[in-house]
């Protein structure tokens, strides 16, 4: 019963972490993707590579450097402690920050592609109808690339739920704070508690499958919209 409530707590922490991370990912990822889509300078390649880095690096590498940066001995950790009065390493906030770095390419890449495909024609047409930049974003860009926003948010959320290496390094396994599902599963396996591990692992597989199916289902619609864009 205790283990069950521990797992339930880990599930809540995971969902909370993934939810908060996704919110910030969209907030940061959207302007970044827009900037990259419009950027013509050669340094674009470097920024793109930087954003994509978590796709190829072992998560523990990112986790290791974040752990160092978050420690009170280094500037980011020091600043955090100064402003919040709390230590950054081994906190929920550390998990969220780490997850933002870790899942950034999953949000930036689909959005950047969508913005590039959208082009400038419709935005110019909207400007000539007196729509300013923010108006254009909400009345043209967002509705025409809505499916990509849903894809980006879903992938960012799903990828954050599935992370292990980064949270292992910077999380600290504190129940209700930093103990997430992937860590809970690892604990069960280490304790040879295979039945509990099975139920967690199988639950994660089903939930991820459902989420990804929903994304792919949604992705059939944007294809139609994009075709229309090309035809018109």
């Amino acid at each position: 019963m205790t283990e069950f409530s521990d797992d339930a707590l880990a599930l809540i922490t995971t969902l909370k972490m993934a939810g908060v991370t996704t919110f910030f990912l969209m907030l940061i990822g959207t302007p970044l993707a827009w900037f990259l889509a419009k950027m013509k300078s050669r340094s674009k390649v470097f920024i793109e590579a930087l954003v994509a880095l978590p796709l190829v690096l072992p998560p523990t590498v990112l986790g290791f450097y974040l752990l160092i940066a978050f420690s009170p001995q280094h500037l980011p950790g020091q600043l955090w402690q100064e402003f919040t009065g709390q230590q950054l390493a081994f906190s929920f906030s550390a998990l969220v920050i780490g997850s933002i770095f870790y899942s950034l390419p999953f949000v930036v890449q689909p959005l950047q592609k969508a913005f590039e495909q959208l082009g400038t024609d419709y935005l110019e047409a909207a400007a000539m109808l007196k729509a300013g930049p923010i108006d254009r974003f909400f009345s043209i860009v967002f509705p025409m690339t809505k499916a990509s926003f849903i894809t980006a948010a879903s992938l960012g959320f799903a990828h954050t739920v599935g992370e292990f290496g980064v949270v292992l390094m910077i999380g600290g396994n504190i129940p209700g704070e930093t103990r997430v599902l992937s860590i809970a599963l690892f604990d069960h396996v280490e304790a040879f508690n295979y039945s509990q591990a099975h139920s967690l692992a199988f639950g994660l597989i089903i939930a991820s499958l459902l989420l990804l199916s929903a994304i792919y289902l949604l992705n059939h619609k944007p294809l139609k919209i994009n075709n229309n864009i090309e035809q018109s």
Partner: peptide, 20 residues
């Protein structure tokens, strides 16, 4: 002056009607 504040409108070669 930005395009949206010039009070000038264009009909382009391709109609550019918003598909959504």
């Amino acid at each position: 002056m930005s395009a949206e504040t010039r009070n000038i409108s264009i009909v382009f070669q391709e109609p550019r009607l918003f598909p959504h």
